[in-house]
Design a protein around this nucleic acid. Structure first.
Length: 497
RNA sequence: GCCGCCUUAGCUCAGUUGGUUAGAGCACUAGAUUGUGGAUCUAGGGGUCCCCCGUUCAAGCCGGGGAGGCGGUACCA
C-alpha cells in the first residue's frame, strides 16, 4: 500500500445544512406548538411528496423573466420532468383538484415539510428549508382571510413571542386599483410594487427614487426605476405615508384617504373593492379582540408578484436580533401568505377561491435561537457504563440492559480505551452519570455511580488538578442490586427525564 | 445577475528578497496515573499551500485565467 488513496473532501453543497440534536429537539418542539394552534382552528394535517411533475408546480414559478431557474428538476425514465417542490401551496392545489369530489368544501389543511429552491443562498437563506402552511380552499369571503391573520397571531403568541411580532395585512386590489386609476401601464406595475415592498429597507426617499428614474445602492448596483410621472409618484408615496399604526384598524376612513390622495382612486371599482375587503377583515379581527399591536393594515406589504389576487399578509418580528458577531440583524419576515384565487383553476375549469399562509420554520427557529427563546444547548446524553475490565463486558452489558429496561437511556462504552478516555467520552456525550464497576467494587458486590453534572460543578472549587482527582467529588457506592434505583436517584436530583 | 472582500493542518493564523524536507497555538488520538472529566508532560495522526497555465535554475510567495467561500444588492413562490 504505497500509493496514496485519493481522498474525498467531506463537504456540503452550499445552501444545505446538517441539523444537530439540539436543533432537532428545539424545532420539534416548535412544530408541536404550531400544530396545536392549527388544529384548534379546525385544520387537518396533509402530507404530499417532495417531488411533483414540473407542470404541476406550475407557471406561477419560475418568474416570467427568469424561466427554469430556482427549481431543482430531473427527468423521469419516461422523460417526464419532475421537480422538487419549492413551496407547499402548489402541491396542495394539485391534491385538492385531484380529490375534488370527495373533499369537504371549504377544505382546511395544514402541511409541514421541506421545500427546495435552487438559488443563491444568503445569511438565513438556504436551498433546503422547512415550511409550515395552513390553507382554506373553497371559501371566498374575508372571514377566511381574517381567520388566517388571527391564527398567525395566535401561533406567534403560542411560540412565546407575544408583543414581539406584528401581522401586517394589505390587499393586492388596493394597489392594482390605485395604479389602474392613475393610468400606470401594466408593464410598469411590477416595478412599482417592488418599489413599494422595499419601504422598510430603503425608506420613503428610496421608494421615491425607485418609482422615478431608479436607485443606486451602496454596493454599486443600480436598480431601474418605474419612470412614473410626478403626480403618480406623489399619490403612491402619499398612500404609503398614510400607514397609520396608532388608530384601531376599523377606525381608518379609507375613502377620505383615497380622496385626499387623488379623487381618481375613489371611483375605481377595484380600489374600492380592495379597501372594502380590508375594512371587513379589520372588523372581524377587532371584534375578536385582536388589537393593532398584533394585526394591522400596512400598505407596503406586497408579497409575491404573480400569485396573490386579494388580501396579503406578512408576519414580521419587531425586535432586533444580533448575529454571531454581535452585529444587529434585520430578520424581517418569518412568514406570510394571502388569497390566491387563481391557483386551483389551472386544474379545473371553475374558479376555486383559496387563502392561506406559510411560516418559515427554519428561519423562525434561527431568529428564536438568536434571542434565546429557543434552547440551543446540547440535550442531555445517556448514562455511560464504563468498561473497567475488558473480560467483564458481559457484566456491564447486563447493567446496561437493566437500566434500559427501567426506561433510562444507557450505553456501554465501546472500545479499548483507558478509563481517562472513557470519562472524556462521557463528558463529551453530556452524560448525566457514569457507572463504574472495577475489581474493587466487584469484590464487595458494589457499583460506583458518579453524578457528572454535580461533579463538574464541584470540580470548579479545586484549583489543583491532582487534588481534584484525589477528591473524586459527586460519586458514591451502591449495592450492585440497587443499581437502577441509585441511577434514578441521580437523574432525579439533576432533573433529567 | 451585479459589486466587494477572502482562500496555507479540523479551527485561528505565521511563513523573510522567490531558496532544501512548509510551521505555531488551539483542537484531535493515546500514554504517563491497579481506576476518574478541566491542568501538566510526552508521543502520534493530520497538508494537492484552492485549481490550471505562465515567468524562473528554483513559486506558498510573481503574472494571467478559473473555481470555491463570505458579505451586500437584485429576485423571492
Amino acid at each position: 500500500m504505497t500509493d496514496t488513496k485519493k481522498l474525498i473532501e467531506p463537504r456540503l453543497p452550499r445552501g444545505f445544512e446538517d441539523r444537530l440534536p439540539g436543533e432537532i429537539a428545539a424545532v420539534d418542539q416548535m412544530l408541536a406548538t404550531i400544530k396545536r394552534v392549527f388544529e384548534r382552528y379546525g385544520f387537518d394535517p396533509l402530507e404530499t411528496p417532495l417531488f411533483e411533475y414540473t407542470e404541476t408546480l406550475g407557471k406561477f414559478l419560475p418568474d416570467t423573466d427568469r424561466p427554469n431557474e430556482g427549481v431543482f428538476s430531473l427527468q423521469d425514465d419516461d422523460e417526464q420532468w419532475l421537480s422538487l417542490r419549492y413551496d407547499l401551496t402548489a402541491p396542495l392545489a394539485r391534491y385538492f383538484a385531484q380529490n375534488y369530489d370527495r373533499l369537504p368544501k371549504p377544505f382546511r389543511s395544514y402541511r409541514q415539510g421541506l421545500v427546495f429552491r435552487n438559488e443563491k443562498p444568503g445569511p438565513g437563506r438556504f436551498r433546503q428549508f422547512m415550511q409550515f402552511d395552513a390553507d382554506t380552499v373553497g371559501a371566498a369571503g374575508p372571514e377566511a382571510d381574517a381567520e388566517m391573520c388571527m391564527m398567525m397571531a395566535d401561533t406567534m403568541d403560542a411560540l412565546g413571542l407575544a408583543g414581539k411580532y406584528v401581522v401586517k395585512v394589505n390587499n393586492r386590489k388596493f394597489w392594482d386599483g390605485a395604479l389602474d386609476a392613475l393610468g400606470v401601464a401594466h408593464d410598469r406595475r411590477l416595478t412599482v410594487l417592488r418599489a413599494v415592498d422595499k419601504l422598510d429597507r430603503v425608506g420613503i426617499d428610496g421608494v421615491t427614487e425607485l418609482l422615478g428614474k431608479g436607485r443606486k445602492d451602496e454596493s454599486g448596483d443600480f436598480t431601474i426605476g418605474a419612470e412614473l410621472d410626478e403626480a403618480a409618484i406623489w399619490v403612491v408615496t402619499e398612500l404609503l405615508r398614510a400607514n397609520d399604526f396608532d388608530v384601531q384598524m376599523d377606525d381608518i376612513n379609507y375613502f377620505s384617504l383615497a380622496l385626499a390622495a387623488d379623487s381618481r382612486l375613489s371611483i375605481n371599482a377595484i380600489f374600492r373593492e380592495g379597501v372594502e375587503e380590508l375594512r371587513q377583515i379589520s372588523r372581524l379581527v377587532v371584534a375578536s379582540n385582536y388589537k393593532n399591536d398584533r394585526i394591522r393594515i400596512d400598505y407596503s406589504v406586497v408579497r409575491g408578484l404573480e400569485y396573490y389576487t386579494g388580501p396579503v399578509f406578512e408576519i414580521e418580528l419587531t425586535f432586533e436580533v444580533k448575529n454571531e458577531k454581535g452585529q444587529p440583524v434585520v430578520f424581517g419576515s418569518v412568514g406570510g401568505g394571502g388569497r390566491y384565487d387563481g391557483l386551483v383553476s389551472r386544474f379545473r375549469n371553475e374558479p376555486v377561491p383559496a387563502t392561506g399562509f406559510s411560516i418559515g420554520v427554519s428561519r423562525l427557529a434561527q431568529a428564536l435561537k438568536l434571542t434565546g427563546n429557543l434552547g440551543a444547548e446540547t440535550p442531555v446524553g445517556p448514562v455511560v457504563v464504563l468498561v473497567m475490565d475488558r473480560d467483564q463486558t458481559a457484566r456491564y452489558q447486563a447493567m446496561v440492559s437493566e437500566l434500559r429496561s427501567a426506561g433510562i437511556r444507557t450505553e456501554m462504552y465501546l472500545g479499548p480505551s483507558g478509563m481517562n478516555a472513557q470519562m472524556k467520552y462521557a463528558n463529551r456525550r453530556n452524560a448525566p452519570a457514569v457507572v463504574i464497576e472495577g475489581s474493587h467494587e466487584r469484590e464487595q458486590d458494589l457499583v460506583t455511580i458518579k453524578d457528572m453534572i454535580a461533579g463538574a460543578e464541584a470540580a470548579k472549587a479545586f484549583t489543583d488538578h491532582a487534588e481534584m482527582k484525589a477528591a473524586r467529588p459527586a460519586q458514591f457506592n451502591a449495592p450492585r442490586s440497587g443499581l437502577v434505583e441509585a441511577v434514578k436517584r441521580v437523574l432525579a436530583t439533576e432533573g433529567v427525564k
